[in-house]
Design a protein around this nucleic acid. Structure first.
Lengths: 182, 182
DNA sequence: AACTTTATACAATAAAAATTGTATAGATTT
DNA sequence: AAATCTATACAATTTTTATTGTATAAAGTT
């Protein structure tokens, strides 16, 4: 291997590491690879470029970037004179982490709202009914308490996402604690 | 539906909600369902009980609980006179969240260590070689900076997991902010 | 020591997710 | 408005993951 090849090899390994990082979020490998590829390129890329660079169909690239936009870790950018769509990714590791974390959980929080209301209503109705046995009564109460606990938990999650999104986290867990190492 | 059935129905929906919550962590649906089932039972359960309750093979239950133990969200418990293994889950939603969060990321941190060292060495070697062009030289430097940034980022992740694991997070995002709601 | 009971290894199957190729609609250019 | 280029919808395929059934080893019981 000559120098150029070795350098390319290191870059490729970096992309794979970024992919692994994304996997920890439960995101598919291809999403990670696209993010890593654009990140390493340091320039927005088109679907065709991604397709040839990664060796995957353009169709798939289209699907992947849309997933990414949905997760808040990529965006379409405009460049004068370029007709193809250009896609850029966040350059800051921390921001990417936070975007993924918050978008995942905020979606879950949203889904939880419907659930909570629906269940709460069911339990209230159930409690109104007259001919409930002592035993059932108690089961209902336990479930009501459980729903309440669940709601508190999800509200906590919501506040945790805000804690990250607002940058508050960095006041307590600062970015570079160790300073420059060798 | 009579009362008992309605109550069972609410419980089942709760289990499904817990499953959805687990999905947000990128864990499989079955893991979520097992956790939800044991949680709702409020008692440790055996593989056979899980199997019949969830309607899945005992083999699969065995696989799932081992995954869960690996992720730190379940444990084997001993009960005098009971030969079958009993599995219990954490009863505190917050603790479960933290266990999943930290175990996922601490594994990633661990994998990253090898990567960092390997890449750092490669780049150092490459830099030693004599006949590098100006251009290559610069590419290598950029990559060295990148590895450094990566290491800082992963150290941050490690510290974030500690921030959660130690309970420090609750000082800044307390458990029940709203107090009792209706 | 023979007999049960239990958990899991392993291979086979089923189900789900990722990926591709073709077709098409919506732009842009000529 | 015809021709060209682009992204994506959709169906088909491949690959991966989840799930099961059978076989077996390890532990417990008689």
């Amino acid at each position: 291997m000559n120098h150029k090849e070795k350098i390319e090899d290191v870059k490729a390994q970096f992309v794979e590491k970024i992919t692994d990082n994304m996997n920890a979020f439960g995101v598919s490998t291809s999403v990670g690879r696209v993010l890593g590829t654009i990140y390493m390129q340091r320039e927005p890329m088109t679907l065709d470029e991604l397709s040839s660079e990664i060796g995957m169909s353009k169709t798939r690239m289209s699907q992947v970037v849309r997933e990414m936009i949905d997760m808040n870790i990529a965006e379409r950018v405009f460049k004068k004179g370029v007709r193809k769509d250009l896609f850029q990714v966040e350059e800051d590791y921390y921001e990417t982490f936070i975007s993924l974390f918050t978008s995942t959980w905020q979606k879950a929080v949203h889904r939880s709202r419907n659930f909570e209301q629906r269940l709460m209503k069911k339990l209230d109705d159930l409690q109104q009914e007259s001919d409930t046995s002592e035993e059932d009564e108690q089961a209902i109460n336990e479930l009501l308490i459980e729903v309440k606990k669940w709601m508190d938990y999800y509200d906590w999650i919501r506040r945790v996402t805000e804690f990250f999104e607002s940058g508050e986290i960095f006041k307590h867990v600062p970015k570079n604690q160790g300073g420059e190492s060798t």
